[in-house]
Design a protein around this nucleic acid. Sequence first.
DNA 1: TTGATCAATTAGTTTTCTTCATGGACTCGC
DNA 2: GCGAGTCCATGAAGAAAACTAATTGATCAA
Lengths: 302, 302
Amino acid sequence: MLERTHLTIIREVDRQGSLTAAANVLCLTQSALSHTVKKMEQQLGTAVWDREGRKLRLTQAGQYLLALANRVLPQMEHAEERMKQYAQGQRGTLRIGMECHPCYQWLLKVVSPYLARWPDVDVDVKQKFQFGGIGALFGYDIDILVTPDPLRKPGLRFEPVFDYEQVLVVGPGHRLAQLPFIPPEELADEVLITYPVEIDRLDIYNQFLMPANVMPKRHKVIETTDIMLQMVASGRGVAALPRWLVEEYAGKVAISPVRLGKRGIAKQIFLGVRETDAAIDYLKAFVELARESDWNAAQKAG
Amino acid sequence: MLERTHLTIIREVDRQGSLTAAANVLCLTQSALSHTVKKMEQQLGTAVWDREGRKLRLTQAGQYLLALANRVLPQMEHAEERMKQYAQGQRGTLRIGMECHPCYQWLLKVVSPYLARWPDVDVDVKQKFQFGGIGALFGYDIDILVTPDPLRKPGLRFEPVFDYEQVLVVGPGHRLAQLPFIPPEELADEVLITYPVEIDRLDIYNQFLMPANVMPKRHKVIETTDIMLQMVASGRGVAALPRWLVEEYAGKVAISPVRLGKRGIAKQIFLGVRETDAAIDYLKAFVELARESDWNAAQKAG
DNA sequence: TTGATCAATTAGTTTTCTTCATGGACTCGC
DNA sequence: GCGAGTCCATGAAGAAAACTAATTGATCAA
């Protein structure tokens, strides 16, 4: 039988590079590991490692098992965490996945009232996914996905929770600041600052520049919103961000929003959950809170 | 530590309804199970079952573990299968998932040359998915998905392998049989026969009838292609199927194809694989075989 | 060549698992 | 309401497994 221990060993040997090192990490003697490994390979009928000199290299079978370990062990580890939480009377951990940078700013505002209302639920936010947000949902790495790209697929349920307008942010006294809206061509002479994301996932490209066949003069990439806005404020370039986010920062940094195109770029944030989980109370509560939050309502009114 | 055994036990107790019955299935004594269960609950710190009288009912924690078991154990079992296959020098099993009825007919034609060319690979076809085809791909229940609905998502790769035209099938001497093409309104007086699938996944509805706001006189649902075509041949109704499929049956059953709308309904079949797997030789070979098969080429030429 | 490092092996010990035997608790039918 | 039949829990003892210590042989780098 393929046991959890076996997968743990395979993963740890891969991480550490040697049996001995793995044994130390796993709090076992090298001998114990060697025995277990031998027995495992006997039972499976296949070698898991090729012994080349004293180096170990995974066989094809071993690689398969490593992949299995990397997707199954995290689930078991998370299950153990949950059991501990159950034991303490806690409800669980809400694992939220984020697929868009500005979503993060929005999320912060929803999370704090949620934490207050659900003291026995922890919140964990993840932003990197091997197989994308959808994959993370299907793979039980997260419980809720915050994304601008929903997906009608069996097994998943997406719900819009927040509407906003994507606008151009410009510095003080910028030549575009006074316009009622900006036509795409105007950006041909500008330096565009964006988050480090593939171009075809940036709305300003695929909904604004690309259709008009315009490219900005230069394209800079910056990780954090704060730095990005300071760059904009200091006249180093322009950026595209949600209007509410710009308005929020407008007090602290000298920036102003301008509509992109005559009609503006309308966006929505969606929450996605697994259908199986849709009934879980603390999960449902999060979606509802997100949808009905006062802040959100005020946003729509304003 | 949460072990594989524990998950197996939880799953089996759930299946059998009692510890004793589960013990028999698992080739253990009732006592052994009872001990293991007790220890497990001690280690986890939570009860997994509520004891109501002598009945067991899963606690919330237990339900969580059962869900975990149901998604993790199949993967481990499949891994063991693969190890056996590796041991025998076999390559592996290609698990193909099907999301559309006529895809199945197409698949049959690709599978047989594939089996001949890859004697050390088994093929397994699945058609029911708890979380849809995409979920099955992400969840490692299948390795290849055959579908008319591709999906650009990180972690997955879709490739078109086959173009065809969806046509209306009518019986001999049917009033519509001689038309060069059929306008949607003509179907208002017809009985439409389809596979048992949600309406919004039927092309004839969402690409043909719905846009014209037409509904058929009646809608019958039939599982199998053969029976469906016999119904059509005997004048009980009309159906929408791939042209190549109709032409293939035309020798055996008295039916004929008619174009749907002036331009016809163009369809494609896609193969989807996990990006991680895209390099696996026998998997890649299947995609290539599917794409380049003589039959497919002949189809395009004709 | 030498010292260091790593995996494999043997033998002995410790821990874990399983069974057997038994008792209490619940259910069903009479 | 009483007994037969089930079902789960438990304690003790034996069987099986996993682990350790010590050692060996191989490989690698200086």
